[in-house]
Design a binder for these strands. Structure first.
Lengths: 357, 357
DNA sequence: TTGTATGCGTTATCAT
DNA sequence: ATGATAACGCATACAA
């Protein structure tokens, strides 16, 4: 009694078809064999419901057609979108994707890299935060939003241009004094360039600005405090705010509501990412849209590219601006423009992040 | 010259340590060996940076510690949440997860099942729509939200109870005449029970109701038409609406806004799923919350359970109600209650799904 | 206790 | 063109 419940193997097919093992392999791999043989083999395959074992295949070929994706989670819309598009790009090429949610945990990141390498993946795509991640040289790695050394290509959107675009847009929309709000890791990464781009845009348009940058652990209430401090006689001293992400913009909008500031009449908001409700509907706010499908395709393309010398160290893909109701331009679709000042009131009911300090 | 760039193998470690292959295997697998040997092997492993090849391991053991997850996409919040929690549950058990986004495409679903089986996964968890999916008996399969035969366990939330809970909640909140709105596949699946539960709840509370059910291809504008037809002299004839998902609720709220109906003053809305903005903030609307982490854990637990006879055919996990601003109860956190009627006005700017017919 | 040999399912190199 | 056989990296039964 050898392996009862196990799936049929090539050997079984060969026996069933009355041919040699090698012949079956050839049929399976599309290598020409005599028609009569091919037909016999194909019948046996159908009869036994034979499926090739890609593990054995990978063992032999030292190639597994599998790629690991490391990402903090799949719930934040930007990550969710990346996961989806990378998955699609890989599956299009008949590659499988191993998903590793890291929860921003450095040790988990390291652990999953080890796991991926044990699994002999053909490559890893990672949006990681561990500042000193150990990656075996032999495993191709593509970093998202973070440069990790010249031998590891980084794919990102044009964060600098996005920041600049936000500043210029606010200027075009008539803003006179604006603010930049950022929260994020202290780690050096590409999204940090949004700040420099924004400053550059403000300077080139002669737009005065202030910045409030809080670090990772700090509560969002710091922003609430900052904004409250800039209200004099009921008026906010900014007429435009650029938030480093849509998620932050969402929080800020709620805060402004509490502070009785109308968006976009009193203050216009631009976010970053291009987040949409329910994946494919409206933008959360006016925003700088990251080209997620193109970023995904670029990651996969770079990772699977044979010519390792042709891998550029940093690829910045172009961003676009999208109207999302929190700015004052004429409605681009010609619909009656609605007052936007009460948006998101809904959301205050359990706004933990905004609770009083 | 044999394999230049390839990773070191057990054989390399054995040579380096000056011991036999089997000894290395034992050290790696924690089988006791003499201390002096163990130390030599461990040193060699460190020196060569050896990683076990889990493909070869799987080939031998006929067990791959890998599970495939089939899901339409990772962008819709409910799916994103499922993917995240299933991923976590699997990784906790040192299992890897192969993600397959199917885009609701029956042929892709079938294709990915074949791919997963070729990969000799230890099991498959699937939220699928293909009515006649061919699944090899030998591969354990757990279905989410859909019963696919007695040998395939189905994990779902208590959709019937959820529907009933929605009806009872609306009754408790003072509604007199309510509506149920549904869009969805014609496929028989568990979420369809929300309708029956809702009807049951209405009947038990003596609440009169109407239903509008559209099928898959139909545009959401059908709902707009339905609602518009139920406005007489500026008043909607419903004072409560139960939407089969939060995504639908979101659309309906926008429609009601266009129709000058205030939510929740004129009409209260309850959705289904427990969707939150940006993954961990506020609920999109008042909603019946699915216990996603528990569902994920249950899927993984059932899938990996050895005792195949102890697998129940259908597991319904309890849902809860959460306030999300679109109903009229007192604010549960004691914050000042805000007028909700202008929520989501923001979103009308590119509401493709709501465009005029 | 340690080493050796065989087999897992596949591919590829050889004779035939 | 087809069939036998070795090798991929690992685990294990068995011999030493």
């Amino acid at each position: 009694m050898k392996k009862e419940n196990s799936s049929p193997t090539m050997k079984d097919v060969a026996r069933e078809a009355g041919v040699a093992l090698g012949t079956v392999s050839k049929v399976v791999n599309g290598i020409p064999v005599g028609d009569s043989y091919r037909i016999k083999v194909e019948e046996a395959i159908r009869k036994l419901n034979y499926q090739i074992n890609s593990y054995a295949q990978g063992l032999k070929a030292n190639k597994t057609h599998t790629v690991a994706l490391l990402i903090p989670n799949t719930q934040e819309p930007f990550y969710a979108s990346l996961v989806y598009h990378i998955n699609i790009s890989l599956l299009k090429r008949k590659y499988r994707m191993l998903l590793c949610s890291t929860d921003y945990d450095s040790s988990q990141e390291q652990e999953y890299i080890a796991m991926a390498q044990q699994n002999k993946v053909d490559g890893i795509i990672g949006l990681t935060y561990n500042p000193n991640l150990a990656i075996e040289e032999s495993t191709p790695f593509i970093a998202i939003d973070r440069t990790m050394g010249s031998h590891i290509p980084c794919v990102t959107s044009d964060n600098f241009a996005g920041g600049q675009m936000a500043a210029e847009k606010l200027a075009d929309l008539g803003c006179k004094h604006v603010a930049f709000l950022r929260t994020g890791s202290s780690l050096t990464n590409e999204p940090n360039k949004r700040k420099a781009g924004f400053e550059n845009g403000c300077l080139s348009r002669g737009l005065s600005y202030e910045m409030k940058i809080i670090s990772d652990g700090d509560p969002y209430s710091e922003f609430e405090k900052f904004l409250a401090e800039h209200i004099h006689e009921g008026r906010l001293s900014f007429d435009g705010i650029f938030c480093v992400t849509d998620a932050l913009a969402y929080s800020v909008i709620k805060t402004l509501q509490k502070l009785n500031q109308k968006v976009p009449e009193d203050v216009q908001i631009i976010g970053f990412d291009g987040t949409r409700h329910f994946g494919n509907k409206d933008y959360t706010c006016s925003t700088i849209v990251q080209p997620v499908p193109e970023m995904a395709e670029m990651c996969v393309d770079l990772l699977l590219r044979e010519n390792t010398s042709a891998k550029p160290p940093l690829v910045c893909l172009p961003v676009t601006y999208a109207y999302g109701g929190t700015t004052l331009e004429g409605n681009p679709e010609g619909k009656p423009s609605l007052p936007m000042h009460d948006i998101h009131k809904l959301a205050t009911h359990n706004g933990k992040t905004m609770e009083r300090t």
